[in-house]
């Protein structure tokens, strides 16, 4: 078994038993199984998504990494591959999808656009990096990153998973994780965490009573009244 495999290198397994027995720690077992079945969410945004499809197809074959199971539902996926330009119109949905993913969840920002807006950064409908809203684990530069670069990014993610410890991971800590507030589409994109700043910078209007109601409505409705079909 390779050094990245299940067996801990410190423990010597006799030669004749190497393919049957592995001595390891729980951490390592846990991470080893997680890292070899990272299911991505079937989720393509722009040009980079085509390279992602190419990476899943026969020439590069994501299945070799246990990642071929693309899940259309966020509730069954482990990694969100943000493959393309994130626009303001789309970010509420992305945040909602992220909130729906069960822990442990990872995010890969594929391409310049997902990392920071890329060549379209100056555009008025472009979010300057998906990490403004959701935490990103691995960044893959390139425009578009070739499928091989994407595979390299996935291997980087595997390394990250490997280095996590059961004792520290956030999803076994006490208390539920906070969902990320879904941004609202107003005259421009409104990040609800920055509401105070936005009001202050655009000159405040008082009457706080009504305001509280509006916030609740906004949080409940998002901007989509009907559920996605």
């Amino acid at each position: 078994m390779s050094p990245e495999g299940l067996s801990k290198p410190e423990y010597q397994v006799p030669q004749e038993m190497q393919n049957q027995v592995a001595l390891t720690t729980l951490d390592r077992l846990y991470n080893w199984s997680r890292k070899n079945s990272v299911w991505p969410m079937m989720f393509g945004l722009a040009c980079c998504a085509i390279e992602m499809i190419a990476a899943a197809a026969s020439r590069y074959d994501l299945a070799r990494f246990g990642m071929e199971v693309m899940r259309p539902s966020p509730r069954q996926s482990d990694v969100m591959l943000v493959s393309g330009t994130v626009t303001k119109k789309m970010i509420p949905q992305i945040v909602r999808l992220y909130n729906q993913m069960p822990e442990p969840k990872y995010v890969i920002a594929m391409g310049a656009c997902a990392s920071s807006g890329g060549p379209f950064k100056e555009g008025y409908n472009v979010v300057a990096g998906v990490d403004k809203f959701i935490p990103v684990d691995v960044y893959i530069p390139g425009c578009p990153p070739t499928p091989q670069a994407l595979l390299h990014g996935l291997m980087t993610l595997q390394k990250k998973i490997e280095s996590q410890s059961l004792k520290e991971v956030s999803w076994y800590q006490k208390g539920p994780g906070e969902p990320i507030p879904v941004p609202v589409l107003g005259p421009d994109l409104i990040d609800m965490r920055k509401a105070a700043l936005i009001r202050e910078k655009s000159q405040p209007v008082t009457e706080p009573e009504e305001a509280a109601v509006a916030v609740e409505e906004a949080a409940q409705n998002g901007e989509l009244p009907a559920k996605e079909g």
Binding site: D191, A211, V215
Partner: peptide, 14 residues
């Protein structure tokens, strides 16, 4: 951030 708002805009009343 990549945003701008009209003056007098209040996100909580939106």
């Amino acid at each position: 951030d990549n945003v701008q708002y009209p003056t007098g805009f209040d996100p909580e009343r939106w």
